[in-house]
Simulated scan of single mutants.
Amino acid sequence: MVSGYRVSSDSNEMDVDVIYSYISSSYWAAGIPKETLKKALENSLCFGVFSSDGKQVGFARMITDQATFAYLADVFIDEEHRGQGLSKWLMQRVHEHPSLQGLRRILLATRDAHSLYQQFGYTALGSPETFMQKWQPDVYKG
Score class of each variant (00 low, 15 high):
Gln66Ile: 08
Ser115Gly: 15
Lys38Glu: 14
Thr36Tyr: 06
Pro98Ser: 11
Ala70Leu: 09
Val139Pro: 05
Ser11Val: 11
Gln133Val: 08
Val16Tyr: 01
Ser3Trp: 08
Ser115Tyr: 11
Met62Asn: 03
Asp138Gly: 06
Lys134Phe: 10
Gly83Pro: 11
Val2Ala: 02
Tyr5Arg: 12
His114Leu: 07
Lys55Pro: 15
Leu37Ala: 06
Leu90Thr: 00
Val57Trp: 01
Val7Gly: 04
Asp112Glu: 05
Lys55Leu: 10
Gln119His: 05
Ser24Ile: 10
Asp53Ile: 09
Tyr22Trp: 12
Asp112Ser: 08
Met14Ala: 02
Ala40Met: 12
Arg104Tyr: 09
Gln118Gly: 06
Asp15Ser: 04
Pro137Val: 02
Gln118Glu: 14
Ser52Leu: 10
Leu107Trp: 11
Lys39Trp: 10
Gly126Tyr: 00
Val18Thr: 13
Lys55Gln: 14
Ala70Gly: 09
Ser25Thr: 14
Tyr71Leu: 09
Glu79Pro: 03
Pro33Asp: 06
Glu35Arg: 08
Val2Glu: 00
Lys55Ala: 15
Gln84Phe: 08
Gln118Phe: 00
Gly48Glu: 07
His81Thr: 06
His114Gly: 06
Asp15Thr: 03
Ala124Leu: 14
Val7Arg: 00
Phe120Val: 05
Gln119Val: 02
Leu72Lys: 08
Lys141Phe: 14
Leu103Met: 05
Leu86Asn: 04
Arg93Phe: 13
Arg93Ala: 13
Glu79Met: 08
Ala40Gln: 11
Gln101Ser: 11
Asp15Ala: 05
Asp15Glu: 03
Tyr71Asn: 10
Met91Arg: 05
Tyr27Leu: 11
Lys38Arg: 13
Leu116Asn: 06
Asp112Val: 02
Asp78Phe: 06
Gln119Gly: 04
Arg82Asp: 09
Gly58Asp: 04
Thr68Leu: 11
Val75Gln: 09
Leu103Asn: 04
Glu80Gly: 15
Tyr122Gln: 05
His114Trp: 02
Pro128Gln: 01
Gln136Pro: 04
Leu45Gly: 07
Glu42Arg: 11
Arg104Val: 08
Ser51His: 02
His114Ile: 07
Pro128Trp: 07
Leu37Val: 02
Val18Gln: 14
Thr68Val: 13
Asn43Ile: 01
Leu41Pro: 04
Glu96Ile: 03
Ser44Glu: 06
Leu37Asp: 12
Phe76His: 03
Leu41Trp: 04
Trp89Ser: 07
Tyr27Val: 14
Tyr22Gly: 10
Thr36His: 03
Val94Phe: 01
Tyr122Leu: 12
Tyr122Ala: 08
Glu42Val: 02
Ile77Cys: 01
Thr130Asn: 14
Ser51Asp: 09
Ala30Pro: 00
Asp17Asn: 14
Ser127Val: 10
Leu45Asp: 12
Ser11Thr: 06
Ser44Phe: 05
Gly102Leu: 09
Gly83Ile: 12
Asp78Thr: 08
Lys38Asn: 14
Ser127Lys: 15
Gly85Gln: 05
Asn43Cys: 01
Phe120Gln: 02
Ala113Gly: 05
Gly142Val: 15
Ser87Arg: 00
Lys141Glu: 12
Glu13His: 10
Lys38Trp: 11
Arg61Asp: 04
Lys88Val: 06
Val2Gln: 03
